[in-house]
Design a protein around this nucleic acid. Structure first.
Lengths: 121, 121
DNA sequence: CCGTATCCCGGGAGATACTG
DNA sequence: CAGTATCTCCCGGGATACGG
């Protein structure tokens, strides 16, 4: 049972983990449908290879939908699936904790500053 | 602003990511204070090196507390910090989503089974 | 008992070039 | 436009041995 509880967490992390997945999801969640090239423009530092592989993994997990237009030049659109939408509360929880954590870091930093100031006096 | 939103998520993931962190956190959350050797026994497949490094990272992020007893033989106890406790809702959200996702996978699987059964008839 | 120090390997991820 | 195909480098993480 210990294992089960944990494997659920790991299953979830598996899907979120990948250097670019959070950013990609963020783009698709906020912009809705996007073409491959739009994603590339929005994420200047990612290579095509990486963008493709991360999108494929998300597609495999039924989080992202890939719509191909049979035409020349090619056109492919990506969007969050209905099932993927169910990640919203999870993403929000992660985001909320991250926000609080950054705040916490700032507090730790300012405490260090106080100590330093006290020493230099 | 896009970057900020995303960096929060990444900040959070950074802390959770690491092959053994979820399991370690699970142990400490359910068992409270644990000695190094207890963790080793609970996690048979982890090496000392890995256990140490993951605990150090968690300690660095103020999630886990390390209490050293100056004695021979040495004794070291690990526990979740007060601040670390604030991860509870996050962990629960991840766990909840993971649970739902596994359920979703089962549904997909049983649909495949139906198709197969239909074909073989 | 609670760790470091070393050595080593596989795979994640970047750079670059090519294609339907 | 939307991808593959290669080649290469780096480092997370395992195995093993040693140290206070």
């Amino acid at each position: 049972m210990a294992d089960e509880n944990c494997s659920r967490v790991e299953t979830a992390l598996e899907i979120l983990v990948g250097k670019w997945k959070p950013v990609i999801l963020y783009q698709l969640f906020t912009n809705g449908t996007m073409r491959f090239s739009e994603l590339q423009r929005a994420l200047p530092d990612i290579t095509k290879k990486m963008l493709t592989s991360q999108l494929r993994e998300l597609e495999y997990h039924d989080i992202v939908h890939r719509k191909i237009y049979m035409q020349i030049p090619p056109k492919v659109e990506y969007s969050i699936t209905e099932y993927g939408m169910k990640m919203t509360p999870l993403l929000e929880a992660i985001n909320a904790w991250g926000t609080m954590h950054i705040q916490h870091l700032n507090e730790l930093y300012s405490e260090d500053r106080k100590l330093e100031d006290a020493e230099t006096k």
